[in-house]
């Protein structure tokens, strides 16, 4: 690759307004530095770092309504999307826990968010199970926090989606037809998921029976097709979730929103950032609990948590920290951008 191509590539990554203002000058300086013997790779790397700074801080960006409107929309997406994309990992991580004591599974009766009245399967049927280790108690609270935060996030995301549907309807320059259609992607995903689940229930076995101590066997229906439909529904749910996030991000990117809609987006991003911090804290407490419960279980008879996807925890925790950082940065910038847009509207 020719050395000046590297500089061209780096300059093309800068925002359009910056290129209009500085690209020719910077190009000339880069040429002069290369002639003076500085390495092209060093110049390229410096330009790339500068590009990230310009995109992050927007220093020198003209006070123009479309530019600041676009920047605020991108900031809202930056604050919201990482957390939305993280959700399937967190669900996979937290949705596979169980309790175990003395090598047998432990259950607790009745509907409860917190384990109590622990029972284990013994020779004489259900027997009282030993108490949770103190660390396992911490894990319970952390799991509860993850559940609550996830539900709140779901509500916030749906509120944000509803706001975007309204904003697209009242958007500035008339939004493109495809943007209006894309905005409905989450609804389409929900409808397909419900339809597949209902179909799986319909074609599946009518009942399950067990005779003479044999394993449960299906009666009527097509078990294979029902399993296939259930798996398909799960794929639609996870894939559709990610697709919806991408679709909404595209709609927000290409549709100019009213200042009111931007203020709503900013509020959504602030709430998401706060929830991201809570989620990261809950995951951290969970991780500490997991490490400690192994030691505590060794010093007595306790009930402990077991995890199907324990290896996902470090990934979840690292992703949660990154999501936290992006959410907080995005929410701060969305707030600033929203204020500038309001100021430009007078």
């Amino acid at each position: 690759m020719r050395p000046d191509r590297l500089v061209d590539i780096a300059l093309r990554c800068y925002p359009a307004w910056w290129q209009d203002r500085y690209a020719i000058e910077v190009r000339t300086v880069a040429d002069d530095l290369r002639t003076a013997g500085r390495s092209s790779v060093r110049i390229f790397l410096d330009l790339v770092v500068g590009m990230f700074r310009v995109r992050r801080d927007a220093v020198g960006m003209p006070r123009s309504y479309p530019l600041w409107n676009a920047r605020t929309r991108v900031s809202v997406a930056t604050a919201t999307l990482p957390f939305v994309l993280l959700a399937p990992v967190v669900v996979a991580c937290s949705g596979s826990t169980g309790l175990r004591a003395k090598g047998t599974r432990v259950v607790y009766s009745g509907f409860s968010l917190f384990p109590h009245g622990l029972m284990r399967f013994g020779k004489g049927g259900l027997l009282p199970a030993p108490p949770l280790t103190p660390a396992a108690t911490v894990i319970s609270w952390a799991e509860l926090a993850v559940l609550v935060v996830s539900l709140l996030t779901l509500v916030t995301v749906f509120y944000g989606w509803a706001s975007i549907l309204g904003a697209v309807r009242h958007a500035g320059p008339r939004p493109r037809r495809w943007a209006r259609l894309l905005a409905w992607t989450p609804a389409l995903v929900i409808v397909v998921f419900i339809a597949l689940t209902a179909l799986a229930t319909r074609v599946g076995p009518h009942e399950w029976t067990s005779t003479g101590g044999r394993p449960m066997a299906p009666v009527g229906g097509t078990v294979g097709l029902a399993h296939l439909l259930i798996h398909l529904a799960q794929v639609v749910l996870v894939g559709g979730w990610l697709l919806s996030a991408a679709a909404i991000a595209a709609v927000a990117r290409w549709t100019e929103m009213t200042p009111f809609a931007l203020r709503t987006g900013t509020r959504v991003s602030s709430v998401t950032a706060a929830l991201a911090v809570l989620l990261a804290a809950a995951l951290a407490a969970w991780g500490v609990g997991v490490i400690l419960q192994a030691h505590q279980a060794g010093h007595g008879t306790y009930t402990v948590f077991e995890f199907g996807h324990l290896s996902l925890w470090p990934v979840s925790a690292a992703a949660a920290l990154l999501a936290c950082h992006l959410s907080l940065t995005g929410a701060t910038r969305a707030h600033q951008g929203s204020q500038v847009v309001a100021g430009l509207c007078g």
Binding site: D46, L47, M51
Partner: peptide
């Protein structure tokens, strides 16, 4: 300084 760093500073000072 590299050009990316310099023009970041100049843009801020100009603003």
């Amino acid at each position: 300084f590299g050009p990316g760093t310099l023009y970041g500073v100049l843009a801020r000072l100009e603003e």
